[in-house]
């Protein structure tokens, strides 16, 4: 794998981050060092091993589909600067 500025720019774009040139340069070096060390995982034999998305067995938690108490519209909007007519207001979508 080639870890270069173009890979870092691609990742940053997916992560919605705008990086300055010195940041890109630093992340190229960091990624090289970190991923080289993490390639240790290549040695792990995971044939027939299942993933653990949780560390402990969990059961699905379901409830009746009924209306319950929740935050009021006013409370939900309390921390938002951009709002209009009881809604969050966001940037242009297109």
């Amino acid at each position: 794998m080639n870890i270069d500025t173009s890979l870092i720019e691609n990742v940053a774009s997916l992560a919605r981050l705008e990086l300055k040139d010195p940041e890109k340069k630093k992340f190229v070096e960091d990624f090289k060092e970190i991923l080289k060390a993490f390639s240790e995982l290549d040695n792990a034999d995971v044939k027939d091993v299942k993933m653990s998305v949780q560390p402990i067995e969990m059961q699905d938690s379901m409830r009746e589909d009924l209306k319950e108490e929740s935050l009021s519209q006013k409370e939900a909007l309390k921390n938002a600067k951009h709002k209009k007519d009881g809604y969050f207001k966001g940037p242009r979508a297109v």
Binding site: M1, F38, L41, D42, A44, V46, V49, K50, M51, S52, V53, P55
Partner: peptide
């Protein structure tokens, strides 16, 4: 990269548990 990193790590987690 997902299989080699994220998914692999989740499998290794099972081995550790």
């Amino acid at each position: 990269y997902r299989d080699a990193y994220y998914i692999k790590a989740l499998k290794v987690r099972s081995m550790i548990i």
